[in-house]
Amino acid sequence: MPTMADVARSAGVSVATVSHVLNGTRPVLPHTRQAVLDAVEELGYTTNTLARSLVTSRTRSIGLAVSAISNPYFTEILQGVEAAALEAGYSLLIADPHDEPEHERKVVQLLHERRVDGMIIAPSPEPRGLLAYLGRHSVPAVFLDRLVDAPAADGSARFDQVCADNAEPTSRLVTHLAELGHKRIGLVAGLPGLSTTTERIMGYRNGLAFAGLPYDERLLVHGASESAGAEQATADLLSLGAPPTALVTGNNAMTIGALRALRARGRSVPGDIALCCFDDFAWADLFTPRLTAIAQPSKDIGARAVRVLLERLAEPDRPARTVRLPCAFVHRTSCGCPDPSGSPSASPSDGPSESPSESPSENLSERGTPS
């Protein structure tokens, strides 16, 4: 197996120069860098990551703990994390905490024992054990998507966090439905305890207040952030004496559950009930009617989390920060509006349409800076 010394001889440079090129520890002249890379390619040299980690105490690896990896939203976040990590020369170790606090702590411990340089975590609704472990072992970590209110002793933030805006986009969906004449607007909210659930409920109530509509606690149900829970929650809403005429769902999985409940009860969208959803996803434009949705910048969230973590590794003592990225309102037809593409709205069904078209969207926030 070729060694770094072999690469140095082939490129006509010192071993130290080869090390600087491969590890990015010092600028190297472009033609010298290229000579080293050509030698690496020609000889088939690979870096001994284990040996390097013993010297530097760094493995150039990142642990990613995210539940429901099969969810398209988190799949796109994973793509953003992976691309940004690879670009920076880091590998990725992935684990699923299943949104269970005890399993979450074990997963984080296992990643830590594998000597990852830092972690990116979408925390569970009850992250006390997680926070205790990270604090006790001083693990560099960035919380992703879901925020954690865990201030330090001086009141400052303890951890870096990256997420989308939640309240304002949800309020936008509610006010849009109110502008269309709806006065009873229901919300299928997510798992209690998650910051995303809390903030979207806040946005829902803010939207009602802005539209001059009263808040009715019977119109707010929890779908546990998954399809089956949302199906039952939507059925509960439909069984009310005065059911909602419009519905907002809190994430993509709950949108599927809500649609199943509506289909099972023969309710058409938007004829019998208008529907808007938080989370745009690949199939949203394939349903008939096409789903009006809030699109989160999923890949950007993942990529930004990596950059924030790398900044933390470079400057361990820098103040923690929270980064919120803007969402977009994607206007389609499930809300009851005419098709923005110009074609008439088709009759409701639960199957894909034959010819999906592009849909306009608008940014709801420009708050992409730390807050």
Rank of each mutant, 00 (worst) to 15 (best):
V306P: 05
I94Y: 09
L219C: 09
R115S: 12
E126C: 03
V330M: 13
P270S: 01
P97G: 07
C163D: 00
G190S: 01
P289K: 04
S91Q: 14
S239P: 06
N206A: 13
G351L: 13
P101H: 00
A16T: 14
G24P: 08
S365K: 07
E100W: 01
P192W: 06
T175E: 15
E76W: 05
T47F: 07
I256K: 04
A224F: 04
R265Q: 14
T32Y: 03
L219V: 05
E87M: 04
E100Q: 08
G368Y: 00
Y215T: 13
V323L: 15
I94G: 09
V142W: 05
S195G: 09
G302T: 07
A39V: 06
A83G: 07
A253H: 02
T333H: 00
P125I: 02
H31A: 15
A320G: 15
T3A: 05
A303D: 09
F281E: 01
L177N: 12
D280L: 10
R205L: 04
A230E: 12
S239A: 15
C337L: 10
D145A: 04
A264V: 04
L208T: 06
A274V: 01
D149R: 13
G135Q: 15
A88M: 05
H137Y: 14
A51S: 14
T197D: 10
T245W: 08
I256S: 11
T25S: 15
K299G: 09
H331N: 06
L238N: 03
I301P: 08
S334V: 00
A189C: 10
A122R: 03
V221S: 02
S361G: 07
L219N: 11
L64H: 00
R115K: 10
P151E: 08
V7A: 11
F210N: 08
I62P: 02
S67H: 06
E199D: 13
G368M: 07
A261D: 00
M119Q: 12
L29Q: 14
D285T: 10
E102N: 05
R312P: 10
M119K: 10
A274G: 10
G351A: 15
D99P: 05
Q34H: 13
A141L: 09
A242D: 15
A303R: 14
